[in-house]
Simulated scan of single mutants.
Amino acid sequence: MAVFIWTAKIDRRKTALVLVGAVVLCGAVLAAVFLGTRGTAASAAVSPKGVKTAEDRAAYLTAWGWQVPDDAAEVEELELPKEFGPEYDQYMSLQADQGFDLTKYAGKRIKRYTYDILNYPTGEAGVQAHLLICKNTVVAGEIVGEDFLHGLAMPG
């Protein structure tokens, strides 16, 4: 009968670093799993980056399920406030729920493209989509009706 004995010298600092790294990695995975639903709506539809042309904007809205004309009904150039006060809390929350963080664009000039929605589920007329774009990236968006405002996702 053969007996094998294996010995190893363990460096406690390296072992501690490996354990800390494993804990951090597990924490990141758990955070992604439990917090991953926030902001997935925007990324699930289509990437908000590289939205350069009228066709790109229409395709972006189409990816959310909206039918829109090829061209925007209105285009406005806006400057976002340097600081978002409490009056913006509800709007910022709506955008954050879609994965958008407008605080990154505070004080920047953006363009707001307004599109008429042709297929709102209730058949309501006058519903519009707003896309806020900075340097070919959608930074915010919403669907606006006479008595409502909601994110880009089709209500269901």
Rank of each mutant, 00 (worst) to 15 (best):
V51N: 02
D147M: 03
G126S: 03
T53D: 03
C26Y: 08
V29E: 09
T53H: 06
T7C: 05
K82H: 01
E55Q: 14
G50P: 15
V127P: 02
M92H: 02
A31Q: 07
S47R: 01
Y91F: 05
H130V: 04
A31Y: 10
T40I: 08
V138D: 05
V24P: 11
S47V: 02
Y88H: 14
T122S: 12
L25H: 08
R12T: 14
L61H: 01
L80E: 00
D11M: 14
I133H: 11
K135N: 10
F84A: 02
D56T: 02
Y115P: 00
L94M: 13
L19Y: 10
L61R: 00
T37W: 14
E87R: 10
Q98D: 06
L149M: 06
T37N: 08
P69F: 04
K52Y: 11
D71S: 10
V23I: 13
R38L: 08
G107P: 01
I5L: 14
I117L: 13
S43I: 05
K9D: 10
H150M: 08
E76I: 01
T103S: 15
I133V: 15
T37H: 12
L149E: 02
A58K: 04
H150L: 14
F100T: 03
I5H: 12
R13V: 15
A63Q: 06
I143D: 04
A44T: 04
I5G: 07
D71P: 04
G99Q: 01
H130N: 04
K135H: 15
A54M: 00
A22K: 08
L25N: 08
L19F: 12
A41L: 09
A2H: 15
A58P: 00
E142S: 11
L152K: 05
I133D: 14
P121D: 10
A59T: 07
K111M: 13
K104D: 08
D89P: 00
A42V: 06
V46P: 03
I117Y: 07
S43R: 15
K135C: 10
R13E: 11
L19H: 12
A42S: 07
G141Y: 13
K135I: 11
